[in-house]
Design a protein around this nucleic acid. Structure first.
Lengths: 218, 218
DNA sequence: TCCGAAACCTAACGACCGTTAAGTAGGTAT
DNA sequence: ATACCTACTTAACGGTCGTTAGGTTTCGGA
């Protein structure tokens, strides 16, 4: 599995990095629309044209920020997956790796998920969907390998990936909004959730699952 | 299982109902913040003070709208649950009932989920959390019955409910944003997803799942 | 026939938004 | 010395937002 991603110019000046960091804080707290340029530059302690000196617009500021933080997460995810063998172990690596990453700086998942799952924002939502697709494709590839190896059954790779991402992302999204997210996004929970994905929570005799085919269009 | 909910004054005038309906369309399309009062009254074909004649504010308009549509869904959900016996069947009733309701008017889940999962909006988010909790409690009660009856195992009712709602809500949230949601939110998919919840997607020998205890606070 | 409430209207209000024109201090290469 | 670039400043611009003051029409009941 190879991971390639266009590199984005990282912040050069100290001012620029502080600007991005405070933007992250405020975007994560109030969302893209509600966090105003004025608040961001005020928190940073600079004047408005400084922001426009480093970024061409509010949208550009946001995209650079997301790209920057996403690259970190994405590369780490690829590394974790490549370091393990077997579908179940790789799923565990994805889930617990994501949990760990999100626990270190909860602002990042707060920003990512609430922007992705929230109302459509022209220019931003398409960008978020593109970014999210990269992560989805990693899961998709692991699922396909699991199906090919006979470790998984019951549906196509797309359906399985969607279910897995529903459980993973929504747990992050919910738990990261609660107090002390670091105490909640534990490796133990991650592993248990993968177990649920694999084995379910019913106590009765196991019956065969058969998901309808996932139709990409129409 | 009893279902009680404070009744909300339904729209009286034809103008008021059209106002709420166009508000639903625009809120679902662009979100609470981005949908302006001007757009809503323009789509309805009235002037601005008419809106303030029926609602005390934009926030009041939104809450009345949500309360109105939620009551419909909530009552139908309770009815579906009461009409079935056994945990697995009740979960199927919840999932396929919710799918059916969302398929009839995709604007409703679009509005509900994107507002609930999106950025925090003062005055609105607390209200959405409260509304969502009502629905969660129905699932929670069914899970507790399933655990008590020995139909479920592997965790407490809260953890199980969260997993179930992650799968259900996020599937609705994702599929309802795609074209032709009515073709996607089928009873077949609903039943299959409950099967996944119960039995998992792994092909190997089943192992025992044990989720960490869900801590409500701290 | 008169009255008052319900259901609307026109026309503005002040606040905040993202953005930028125009100017300046300070270091550096020529 | 001077030309130049980077990193900033002050001070506005036009636009959209939610909201409302104040007036008009319509119409059923007394």
């Amino acid at each position: 599995m190879t991971v390639t991603l266009p590199a984005v110019r990282p912040p050069t000046t100290d001012t620029e990095e502080r600007l991005l960091d405070h933007a992250l804080t405020l975007f994560a707290e109030k969302g893209y629309e509600a966090a105003s340029v004025r608040e961001i530059i005020e928190a940073t302690g600079v004047t408005r044209p400084v922001l426009y000196y480093y970024c061409s617009s509010k949208e550009d500021l946001f995209k650079r920020l997301v790209h920057w933080k996403h690259d970190e997460a994405y590369r780490e995810l690829g590394k974790n997956v490549n370091a393990t063998k077997g579908c179940a172990n790789r799923l565990r690596a994805i889930m617990s790796g994501s949990f760990a990453f999100c626990a270190t700086d909860p602002r990042v998942p707060r920003l990512m998920f609430q922007t992705h799952f929230g109302p459509t924002i022209p220019g931003i939502s398409e960008f978020m969907a593109e970014v999210a697709k990269l992560r989805f494709m990693i899961v998709h590839q692991v699922m396909q390998e699991g199906l090919d190896a006979g470790e998984l059954e019951g549906g196509d790779a797309a359906s399985l990936s969607l279910i897995f991402c529903c459980i993973m992302d929504q747990h992050i999204n919910v738990l990261v909004r609660m107090p002390k997210p670091k105490k909640r996004l534990t490796p133990e929970l991650a592993d248990s959730l993968v177990d649920v994905f694999l084995f379910g929570l019913g106590s009765g005799k196991r019956s065969r699952v058969s998901l309808p085919t996932f139709a990409a269009d129409q």
